[in-house]
Amino acid sequence: MISIKNVRKIYSSRQGNVHAVDNVNVEINEGEIFGVIGYSGAGKSTLIRMLNGLELPTEGSVTVAGRVVSKIRGGELRKARQEISMIFQHFNLLWSRTVRENISFPLEIAGVTRKERTKRVDELIKLVGLEGREDSYPSQLSGGQKQRVGIARALANNPKVLLCDEATSALDPQTTDSILELLVDINKRLGLTIVLITHEMHVIRKICHRVAVMENGRIVEMGSVLEVFKNPQQPITKRFVQQVTEPEETKETVEQLIEQYHSGEIVQLTFVGGSAEQPVITNLIRHFDVTVNILQGKISQTQSGSYGTLFIHLDGSKDEIAKAIEFIGTQQVGVEVIRNG
């Protein structure tokens, strides 16, 4: 559906050239939810803007839904943009238009008749759950409602691709979740390909099938979300994964525990997919002569399975502990000793 080949974007400034996007290659499949994560300035914003021609690559080509977006101009590009919609961090609604008129805007651009427009707008309002707010102005809506208008507007012309530019970054966590659920629902119902950029791993975890991690204009890591969670390679990826798997205070807690327990070992277990459902701890206690103390744990759901971490304290004879750790390793559970007792 989307193919980004050898794309570079170089901004020249007085201080020299800046490589905003550096040799990026990505293939995104039809019906996929693809996430790009990175800190601000990583080039993700430039990258997503190349998908609808708001930015042009300095080198390389961008093909979306069979059209070479990086080459076409004028009317052809405008036509293509009707099939590649975008939603924005700050919603970018027209304050001078009501909800209904805002959603109608892309239909006016596409030359849809008034009667058809009314019908389509009604459908969209229902789809995004804004019944009763049709005649409100954006200033009378909450952030979440504004983004719903943004989504309805983006879907008006039945696009093939939806680009989300930090679409939930201006929303509170609860509203973020409801907007993400709406996006998943749309993806399933309409088979829409969604590309989103974000700096929140939570968003990636919750809805993406695949993820690319960007740093300094390059994609440093890419793969299925579960795979990346299970086995992050780059330091930056590890940091992002920690955002969702480890509660903020984990480090402090572990340090405190080390002080507290003078014998035994503190072990971090990592569960991915099916292994998260196995009774590892029960087996551990049954087969080995060790005491298990559960310290802290968390399980996160992703689109392709669950992922979790568990901190436990093992106590007993050195021999038994070593055997126990070895046993956990054979259970498709990641194991890492935090400290030797």
């Binding site: 609808n52 708001l54 590009l77 405008r78 036509k79 293509a80 943009r81 009707q82 590649i84 919609s85 975008m86 924005f88 700050h90 970018n92 609604l93 027209l94 805007f105 892309p106 651009i109 596409a110 507007r153 012309n157 680009l163």
Partner: peptide, 11 residues
Amino acid sequence: GVIEAAKSMGA
């Protein structure tokens, strides 16, 4: 951003 949004709709 509003002008950009209009552009992104093919205006």
